[in-house]
């Protein structure tokens, strides 16, 4: 199969039952994406497939043949953090960090589709990105701040 991950093309053979998260982590060595619940409920494994966020733990690698994937490794611009990443650091939107790649990729999908979301739109979109440390308020604040910063930059 052929796919593009964070702008890099890959041609790779995978077994029929290989999940997308295993392809990314084990075959391509992109271990930023985490697998936690394994059943599509917790959001830790969120990646973008052709711009749409999906749970990579319940998607087969074979489903993304020909697709463009963005993972947490593709969010920053080299050493320069994405506004969301800076905002998560500044607002305390992370603590242990396990859920953070999924949070940031999901939030990126939100801001790509809706650059100035309301608090309710953030809560609705980020539902299912579970975090057991922050209590969510700082995550919401980080996304609002990133939207503000990005809005000023435009």
């Amino acid at each position: 199969m052929h796919l593009t991950v964070n702008g890099n093309p890959h041609d790779i053979d995978v077994p029929a039952g290989r999940t997308l998260v295993d392809l990314l982590r084990d075959d391509l060595g992109l271990t930023g994406t985490k697998e936690a619940c394994s059943v599509g409920v917790c959001g830790a494994c969120t990646v973008l497939v052709d711009g749409r966020m999906v749970a990579s733990c319940i998607m087969l690698a074979a489903q993304v043949d020909g697709a463009e994937i963005v993972t947490i490794e593709g969010v920053a611009d080299g050493e320069l953090l994405h506004p969301l990443q800076r905002a998560f650091v500044e607002a305390g939107g992370l603590q242990c960090g396990i859920c953070t790649p999924g949070q940031i990729v999901a939030a990126k999908a939100l801001l790509d589709a809706n650059p100035a979301p309301t608090e309710d739109e953030i809560a609705d979109w980020m539902m299912g990105n579970l975090c057991r440390c922050t209590g969510y308020y700082q995550i919401r604040e980080a996304i609002l701040e990133a939207a503000r910063v990005s809005g000023r930059a435009r």
Binding site: G40, R52, M53, V54, A55, A109, D124, W125, M127, G128
Partner: peptide, 9 residues
């Protein structure tokens, strides 16, 4: 239904 992530697939 569930979350956006599930509804996208």
């Amino acid at each position: 239904v569930a979350t956006v992530r599930i509804r996208n697939a």
